[in-house]
Each structure stands twice: as structure tokens, then as C-alpha cells.
Amino acid sequence: MNLAQFPRRGYVKEATPIEAVPAFSKALGGKVNIFIKRDDLLPGCAGGNKTRKLDFCIADALDKGADTIITCGAVQSNHCRLTLSWAVKEGLDCHLVLEERVKGTYSPEASGNNFLFQLMGVKSITVVPGGSDMMGEMEKLAATLAGQGKKPYIVPGGASNTIGATGYVSCAQETLEQLFAMGLNIDHMVVPSGSAGTHAGVVTGMVGCNSGIPVSGINVSRTKDVQEEIVHKLAEETAERVGVKGGIPREAVECFDSYVGPGYSLPTESMVEAVKLLASTEGILLDPVYSGKAMAGLVDLVRKGHFAEGSNVLFLHTGGSPALYAYLDTFRG
């Protein structure tokens, strides 16, 4: 793979740390050694994994002469926060389309990412009901803005297309280089699986580098069968883009859907436990929607003996801690 052929903006200046979390591992019985890839420390307003994807997506937008970015997400979207932050940095207008996936949950006065949208000067926020055709809604807004003389560029939800997923192919390469330098052999990698770009990119990179490291996704919304098909399709398309010969084996994509709970963004007891446990043992913050539920999955898999005793397991921390402040009642309760 020659990723240097693809334009990017250079938002990722250096590798994010891979940290051992021994106190957390001990709290889970000490039979598995857990490490965390700290993509929550990536640049961009309050950090998070979407910076890797936007590095490539914003470059594509600028190459196409865009002066305006449109993207979408849920009402507390970390992706929308980071897209807005990089648009601000680049001097681009940014318009957000927010999907109220749980009716009645959007409030312009809310804390968390909603507050940051306003603080960074978002040009407009359009709120649509759950289940809306989000690409269709963004295309309508793009047509309106084009009629006003703007040059809009649509970044899909989560920046989860082949352009964005290339950022996580790069992350897989970066991770393998770090592990070699550290002399650390990882037996398994666990990632949050939502809009699919992060999961698909990591799988593509790990397969493309012949790493032999299995990657498991912890779902935050969809069922196992649906999510695996979405991730595999995007991984195949990304592999074709970056030049992975032979494609992506279907068995390389594995998802667990037992930790979603009542629905996307809705709290679960296991998520609350995982967030509190990592914070109280290692001083690392998760978010309640993605990394919190993904870590809840990892915790449960460790307790069930899914990983062999003595295994080294790497968790990808995708960030999102600003959303914690919109869930104060959940954690204080």
C-alpha cells in the first residue's frame, strides 16, 4: 500500500500513544493484558478518531474547490464536532444536519457537543427525525447553498467512505510500526463499530500489512449480521482504493452486538461501569455512546474468557469525552 499517493492535510502530526493500563487489567482479573491506542488524543477540538478521516476528506474538499462543508450525525455527534473544528481551522463554512434518533433528545441549550457547535460558530444546524434519509437531507441543503453561490462539499456521516477509511488504514500501519518499536506482540484488537469507517479501515490496514492480528468490532447500534455486511463492503471498497491485493476475507470482519442495549446513544449499566472503572483506575475518560459501549464489550469478553490467558489485547480509544457532560444524570444517578 502506498498511502502517500492520496492527498491529506497533515492533521495527524505524530503517532498517538499505545499505553498499558495495568490497574484496569488487574481490576478485570489480571489474566489479560490490556493496552489502549489513544486516538482520543488526536488534534482537533477535544480530540477523537474522526481527525484521521477528515485529514483525507478535507483535502479532497479543498482539491475540489469547496468553500463549505456539510456533514451529519446524531444530536451529540463527535464527528460533527471535529468536522466543524477542522472547517473552522481551514476557513470553511460548516453546516450540520443532526438526526434526532431518540425523539425529544435534541436541545439547542444542551451541554456536551451541542455547546461546542455553538462555541465554534456553526453556520447552521438542521434537525431531522430519526430514520431520515441523511444523504438526501444533506444534498437538499447543498443545493440550497449552491443556489446562493457557495461551493459545498458533503462529508458523509462519520466520514465513513473510502476516503475517510483511508485514515484508519494509515492508523493500522502506524500501530504496527509502534508495536515493532515497543517489542510488543498484540494478540487481538478491539474497536468501536458504528458508521463503519474506523472498523473497515483498521481491518483493511491489518489485512493489507499481513499482520495476523484479528480485529473485533463492538457495535453501538446495528445487529451483528447487518453491521458485519456494512463493514465488509466498505473494507472491500477501501482495499481496492489503497491497493490491497486479494481483497478482504469475510472472516476478517467480526462484530459483537450484545452491548448496544435499548438503542444507539441510550445508556446501559455495563457502559456506565466501564466508563467509571477506566476513569477510576487509569484516569482515562471514555464517551457514553461509542468508546464506553465498546469498552463494556471488551470488559465482558475478558470476564467470559473470550481471550486466552496471558493475551495482549489492544483497545482503540476513539475519543468523544465531551459527550459525557450531556449525560451527567446517568453517571450521578
Score class of each variant (00 low, 15 high):
Met189Leu: 14
Asn219Met: 10
Glu273Ser: 08
Ala4Val: 01
Leu324His: 00
His95Pro: 06
Thr330His: 03
Cys45His: 13
Arg8Glu: 10
Phe256His: 14
Gly305Thr: 09
Ile18Met: 14
His199Tyr: 14
Ala172Gly: 07
Leu179Glu: 13
Val202Ala: 07
Leu324Val: 02
Leu314Arg: 00
Thr268His: 01
Gly158Met: 01
Tyr11Arg: 08
Asn161Glu: 04
Leu301Cys: 05
Ile70Val: 14
Ser311Leu: 02
Val75Thr: 14
Gly208Phe: 05
Leu141Gly: 09
Val260Glu: 08
Leu314Thr: 01
Asn210Phe: 07
Glu139Ile: 13
Ser85Ile: 05
Glu228Gly: 12
Val203Trp: 06
Val242Phe: 06
Gly44Tyr: 09
Gly164Lys: 05
Leu145Pro: 11
Val207Leu: 03
Ser221Gln: 01
Phe331Cys: 06
Ser111Arg: 09
Met134Leu: 15
Gly130Glu: 04
Val97Ile: 13
Gly157Ala: 13
Gly201Leu: 08
Asn210Asp: 11
Arg303Ser: 12
Lys276Val: 09
Leu298Ile: 07
Val127Cys: 10
Val231Ala: 11
Glu19Ser: 11
Glu228Lys: 03
Glu90Tyr: 01
Ala159Asn: 04
Lys13Arg: 13
Ser321Lys: 06
Lys64Thr: 05
Leu141Pro: 01
Cys255Ala: 15
Ser221Phe: 01
Val191Ile: 11
Leu96Ile: 00
Arg222Lys: 14
Val231Glu: 07
Phe307Met: 03
Gln118Glu: 12
Glu236Arg: 15
Ser25Asp: 06
Pro214Tyr: 08
Arg52Val: 05
Leu316Val: 13
Val75Glu: 00
Leu328Cys: 00
Cys80Thr: 04
Leu179Gly: 12
Lys276Gly: 00
Ala15Val: 07
Ala74Asn: 01
Glu273Asn: 12
Tyr290Pro: 06
Leu301Arg: 03
Gly147Leu: 08
Gly121Pro: 06
Gly91Pro: 10
Asp300Glu: 12
Thr71Glu: 10
Ala87Val: 08
Glu139Asp: 06
Thr204Ile: 08
Glu109Lys: 14
Arg332Thr: 11
Gly319Ile: 09
Gly201Arg: 05
Lys293Leu: 00
Leu176Ser: 14
Cys94Arg: 06
Ala196Met: 07
Val155His: 05
Asp63Lys: 15
Ile70Tyr: 13
Tyr325Gln: 05
Met134Gly: 06
Ile213Trp: 11
Pro152Met: 03
Ala87Phe: 02
Cys72Ile: 15
Val203Ser: 04
Gly212Trp: 13
Ala159Trp: 05
Asn312Ser: 11
Glu254Thr: 13
Pro249Lys: 12
Gly194Asn: 14
Leu3Ile: 14
Pro7Arg: 10
Val88His: 14
Leu92Thr: 06
Gly30Ser: 14
Lys293Ser: 06
Gly194Ala: 15
Gly91Phe: 10
Thr198Tyr: 10
Gly131Glu: 11
Thr281Lys: 11
Lys123Cys: 01
Met182Ala: 12
Gln178Glu: 10
Ser193Leu: 12
Cys255Val: 12
Lys233Thr: 04
Lys151Ala: 09
Thr71His: 06
Cys57Val: 08
Leu234Cys: 08
Gly91Asp: 12
